[in-house]
Design a protein around this nucleic acid. Structure first.
Lengths: 257, 257
DNA sequence: GAATATTGTTCTGCATTATAGTACGTTATG
DNA sequence: CATAACGTACTATAATGCAGAACAATATTC
C-alpha cells in the first residue's frame, strides 16, 4: 500500500513515470531522467535498462541519450483497434464526399482524444493531431458526446469542468453549455462554430456503446466559409448515418430514435 | 540479476508482458491474463491494478474485463514524433501529386514498421497498417534502407535473415537479394515489384541519420498497372528529393552523392 | 433456483527484489 | 590538463513485491 491509498507497485509506476518524462523531451540522459522523475540515479538506471530491454525506450547511439522506443508505438497502435478499424473506412468516405478532414475521437474523462484522422487534400485545411487532447465543451465531437450522456454522468462532468474562453464563441459557463447541448440534442448533431479557433468549424455525431451511451464521435472539420448552413445540414445526415452503422458494427443494437 | 543475465526489474518486465497479452486479445480478465503470462492470479492482479491506475489498461465496465488504455495510445503517438512531423507534409504532397498511398517507415532490426501513411483517395488502393511490421527483404522501403547500409551492418543482418517466398517475385535467398540491392544502389531508389503481394508495387527512398546511415524510408505504393516504368522513374525523383530534404531537416548535412 | 464452479479481490507473512549509496571508468567542459 | 558531470557496476540492507490462502462476487450447471 502506498501513500495515495492505492495498492500499486512502486517500480512499475516509476517505470511509467520515466516514460512520461519523454512527453516533453524527445531525448534524455540517465541523470536528466532521474532528476525529472525525482529518483536516485542508480534507481533510474535500473528502470531505464529494463525499459530499454523491452524496447519501450531506445538509446540514441550518437548522443548516448534515450528516447521513446518503437515497441511503445507498436503497442499504442493496438489500442481501440476494433473501433478504429471499423471507423476508418467511414472517415475516408466522408473525405471523399465532402473534401474536408474527418476525425475519430474518444472521450477520456473531461477531454476527447483524437484516435484517427483522414485529411482533406485541399490545401487550406484543418490539421488536427492524432493523440492530441482537447476539452469536451469547445469541440463538436465533445458536445456530440456530452449531449447524449445520461443526466447523472453529464452532471458529474459538468461539476468538474473548468471553462476557458478560446475564442469569442467559446461556451464558457455551465448554463450556456447546457443550452448548447439542448440544441445539439434537438438537431441530432453537434456543431463547433469557431469555438476553439477562429476560422475553424466542425460538425460531429456520437458513437454509442452497448449501453447506448456515447463514448466516441466522428467529425468533419474545415474552414468556416466552406462549412455553411446548407453544407452542415447535408453532411450531418451522412455523419449520423455513419455513426449509426459504426455503433451497430460495434455490437450496439439501436432500438430507439 | 535474473536468469537471462540482464539486470532488469522483474515487476516492470511482468507489467510489460501483461500489456503484450492484449496484442492478440482485445479484452482479457484477470485469470486469463495470469494464465497467458504465467503469473499467480494475485500477482497479476497487483500488476493489472497498477497499469489501470496509470491508464495503460482500462476496465470494460460491461464485461468486467480489461483492454489497452488510452494513455498507452497517447504515449505511443509521442514516439518518433520529430521524424513523423517532418515527414508527413511530404507524404501528403506525394499523394496529391501521384494519387497513390504514401508511407513512412523505420527499420527495426530485420523489419520495417509503418509509422505513418497518407492514403490515396482512389478507390482501388493499397491499404497498409500503421504499426504493422514487414520483413526488410520483400519491401521497397526495406531494400531502400538495406542497399545503403554500411557493409558490416548489412552483413550482420543478412546472416540472420530468414527468407519466405510471399510471391513468385520474392527474393528468397541471400545472393538474389544482394543483386537486387546492387541494382537499387545504382538506380538510387528501391522497387518492390509484386514481391510481397501480387498486384502490389512500390517505390521507396531512404532517409539518413546524422551518421549518414539510413534508418527510415518513404514510399509510394499502388496497383502494379498504375506503377509502370515511366511512373516509377518520374515519381522516384520526387521521392529522392523529399528524403533528401527530410534527412536535412533531421540535421543530416549531406556532403556526398 | 439451489449448488457448484469460476473469477475477482483483499490480506498477510516471508523472502525476494528493488533500492540507494558508493565507487569506478569514461566522456564533456573549462 | 584538471575537473566536473555522466553513465554504469557492485553491494548490503531494508523495503517491497509476491504467493498462498481465504473471501466475495459473479457465472454456470443441473
Amino acid at each position: 500500500m502506498n501513500k495515495s491509498g492505492e495498492n500499486v507497485i512502486q517500480s512499475v509506476c516509476r517505470a511509467i513515470q520515466i516514460i512520461r518524462c519523454f512527453e516533453k523531451n524527445e531525448e534524455l540522459g540517465v541523470t536528466e531522467i532521474s532528476k525529472i522523475a525525482g529518483l536516485h540515479k542508480s534507481t533510474a538506471f535500473g528502470l531505464i535498462s529494463t525499459l530499454e530491454a523491452n524496447k519501450l525506450i531506445e538509446k540514441n547511439e550518437l548522443t548516448g541519450k534515450y528516447r521513446l522506443g518503437l515497441e511503445l508505438f507498436r503497442l499504442g497502435t493496438k489500442v481501440n483497434s476494433a473501433l478504429r478499424h471499423i471507423a476508418v473506412p467511414y472517415l475516408e468516405q466522408l473525405v471523399k464526399m465532402y473534401q474536408e478532414t474527418a476525425n475519430l475521437v474518444v472521450m477520456d474523462d473531461l477531454s476527447i482524444i483524437y484516435l484517427e484522422k483522414v485529411e482533406s487534400t485541399q490545401s487550406m485545411r484543418i490539421s488536427t493531431l492524432v493523440g492530441g487532447r482537447l476539452p469536451l465543451y469547445c469541440t463538436a465531437v465533445g458536445k456530440a458526446i456530452l449531449a447524449n450522456l445520461p443526466p447523472e454522468e453529464l452532471n458529474s462532468k459538468l461539476k468538474r469542468m473548468e471553462f476557458r474562453k478560446y475564442t469569442g464563441n467559446t461556451v464558457s459557463d455551465r448554463n450556456s453549455l447546457m443550452e448548447s447541448l439542448e440544441l445539439t440534442r434537438n438537431r441530432g448533431y453537434a456543431e463547433d462554430n469557431e469555438e476553439l479557433e477562429i476560422g475553424l468549424s466542425c460538425i460531429a455525431a456520437p458513437i454509442y456503446n452497448h449501453f447506448n451511451i456515447p463514448f466516441a464521435a466522428i467529425s468533419l472539420s474545415g474552414p468556416t466559409f466552406r462549412m455553411d448552413e446548407v453544407f452542415r445540414k447535408e453532411a450531418s445526415v451522412t455523419l449520423m448515418n455513419y455513426t449509426g452503422e459504426i455503433s451497430m458494427k460495434l455490437g450496439y443494437d439501436n432500438n430507439n430514435q
